[in-house]
């Protein structure tokens, strides 16, 4: 029992390291799609974001879906309000604070300037996400195996000490 539960905790910890690079990767993909929408189609934000929500994996999809819905809601919030409200979804999905901060910055500028400027902001964000992905991958490689074994080992140790 002890070995199992302790092992499980280890596996859960390992899993968080596994999902972060994947989530960030989907986020980067979505930002890339947004850049394409703005650059080539000049679609408006609600239009572009609801299209992205259909193409991308969860939880990033519900973030973009929520953002588009917020923008279209009756009280017509500002971009930053709609963006920050939608970011709650990523927060609940377990995104790290530092990753959310990178995203939060985009809310300040999104939609407020001409296309050239928007594209610059979006590529900057993609670069930052790329380096976050790299870092997340390094951490994953380092920590996943560690937590996988650590859980079981600690469980075994506790058993040994008890008896």
């Amino acid at each position: 029992m002890i070995i199992c539960s302790s092992g499980l905790i280890g596996l859960i910890m390992a899993n968080t390291y596994m999902t972060r690079p994947l989530n960030l990767y989907h986020l980067q993909l979505a930002i890339q799609l947004l850049e394409t929408e703005i650059n080539y189609a000049r679609s408006s934000l609600p239009e572009a974001c609801s299209r992205i929500a259909e193409q991308i994996k969860q939880p990033v999809a519900s973030f973009f879906g929520e953002f588009a819905a917020n923008l279209q809601s009756l009280e017509s919030p500002t971009v930053i309000e709609a963006w920050n409200r939608a970011l709650q979804i990523l927060k609940e999905a377990g995104f790290l604070k530092e990753d959310l901060e990178i995203m939060a910055q985009l809310g300040n500028v999104l939609g407020q300037s001409d296309a050239d400027d928007q594209i610059k902001h979006l590529s900057l964000l993609q670069n930052r996400l790329a380096s976050a992905i790299k870092q997340a991958e390094q951490e994953r490689d380092k920590n996943v195996r560690l937590w996988n074994y650590l859980g079981f080992c600690v469980g075994a140790l506790v058993v040994l000490l008890l008896f």
Binding site: I38, S44, P46, L110, G111, S113
Partner: peptide
């Protein structure tokens, strides 16, 4: 500025 944002659907770049 709010009026412009609403009119442009928050997408000034789309209206160049």
């Amino acid at each position: 500025s709010r009026t412009i944002q609403i009119m442009s659907k928050n997408s000034w770049y789309a209206l160049e």
